[in-house]
């Protein structure tokens, strides 16, 4: 085992893995729903990093946990709004493909 691999590093690397997967997904997905899934992955990574930083460093413990709870609340609000936006876009364009939903020509 590499000496630098203490639990804090391990948890932060897991959070970074989530961020990288989310970035890859949001770049390569063409549908809005696929992008939403990738955003949820990244938000989860943020929550994991926050909790790891709060639990395994001298930082205030409740701060990180409450922060993660707020991130979860924001993610729920964001998912609600994005669902409504996807519905509106789908009603208007008949597709949720991000490449096809443009009204400008050229």
């Amino acid at each position: 085992m590499i000496p630098a691999m203490n639990p804090l590093v391990l948890f932060h690397l897991a959070a970074l893995l989530l961020l990288a997967l989310g970035l890859y997904g949001i770049t390569i997905r063409k549908t809005l729903v696929g992008m939403l899934i990738s955003v949820e992955l990244m938000l989860n990574g943020a929550g994991l990093a926050l909790v790891a930083s709060a639990r395994l460093t001298p930082a205030l413990d409740a701060l990180g946990q409450v922060g993660t709870l707020l991130v979860m609340g924001l993610a729920a609000a964001e998912a609600t709004l994005v669902l409504a936006i996807i519905l509106v876009v789908f009603k208007r364009f008949g597709t949720s493909d991000s490449a096809k939903i443009s009204t400008l020509r050229g």
Partner: peptide, 10 residues
């Protein structure tokens, strides 16, 4: 569940 609704409705 919300995302599943989004998939279902589109």
């Amino acid at each position: 569940v919300l995302i599943f609704f989004a998939i279902m409705l589109t």
